[in-house]
């Protein structure tokens, strides 16, 4: 059971400056953390390989400081780590990101499952996993709260939907995105942290190593146009609760709305 997990480093705070020209986050100098949801993906991968054997490889695209997210993955027990970096890859939207990850997964070659977090804490699009599955042309099973291997080479997940759950099954290889509640990620022991920084390697691949078409990487390969970036101001006002009989309350509500020209 060889698994590739895609992980991302996200800013530790929610107050990250934006580049108004490019419409992207200015991440330099902002302390990063491993995307919380990706910790669940790592944990899911480790649990699967602990049960069925196999190799877990973590890949991450980002600036050089993303090395730390990959070291954390190594300290948790991931076997290999690959950093995808360089100026050609910078400024990528979800399409360019999934294209880059696709080339990396291809280059790794052997895999039964690709695991992603459902979404990243900063982008919150939940697009990269599904797009990557499309590039790889494999089935995608999203929002998993449970993963089981069945009938030897099939995977079955419990998928969380807005109003319930459903079970999905697919042949392997497949891509799975996981929800936070799928597991409780382990904490790396101190000696593994030391090994991750002292004894283990993070491989570094740039656009040149990945092959592919240069114009599809990074900002150039990103069709998403960000017109304006602003922080939504939440207006605070008085709250009024109408009590009493339903139809009376409804009438009163309509009157209030009319008075304020809100109808």
């Amino acid at each position: 059971m060889d698994i590739v997990i895609c992980i991302k480093e996200v800013p530790e705070t929610t107050e990250v400056p934006w580049d108004p020209e490019k419409g992207i986050l200015i991440r330099e100098g902002i302390p990063g953390i491993l995307n919380p949801n990706d910790k669940n993906a790592i944990e899911a991968a480790l649990q699967l390989t602990e049960k069925y054997g196999g190799v877990v490889t973590a890949i991450s695209m980002g600036p050089a400081q993303t090395d730390d997210a990959l070291r954390e993955a190594l300290s948790l027990g991931v076997d290999n780590a690959v950093l995808l970096t360089g100026r050609h890859l910078a400024g990528a939207d979800t399409l360019a990101t999934s294209y880059t990850l696709y080339l990396a997964v291809k280059k790794i070659g052997r895999f039964d499952i690709v695991l992603c977090g459902k979404e990243s804490a900063d982008g919150v699009t939940a697009q990269v996993g599904p797009q990557l599955a499309e590039f790889l042309d494999i089935p995608q099973l999203t929002y998993a709260t449970n993963i089981e291997i069945v009938k030897g080479n099939f995977v079955r997940i419990k998928q969380k939907l807005e109003d319930g759950f459903r079970e999905l099954e697919s042949p392997l290889p497949a891509l799975i995105t996981v929800e936070r509640e799928i597991n409780n990620p382990r904490i790396p022991p101190m000696d593994h942290i030391m090994e991750a920084y002292r004894d283990k390697q993070v491989m570094v691949w740039t656009a040149d190593d990945l092959g592919g078409q240069m114009e599809r990487f990074g900002l150039k390969g990103s069709p998403t146009q960000c017109l304006k970036v602003y922080t939504q101001r939440i207006k605070k006002g008085k709250m009024q609760i109408l009590e009493g009989d339903g139809s009376m309350v409804a009438k009163e509500l309509v009157q209030i709305l009319r008075k304020r020209n809100l109808t």
């Binding site: 953390i33 090395d67 730390d68 790396p188 942290i193 991750a196």
Partner: peptide, 15 residues
């Protein structure tokens, strides 16, 4: 602090 120390801090905090 080294990146290693920072990760140790994080692990201890989670613990």
């Amino acid at each position: 602090l080294s990146a290693e120390s920072k990760l140790m801090i994080k692990a201890a905090r989670d613990f």
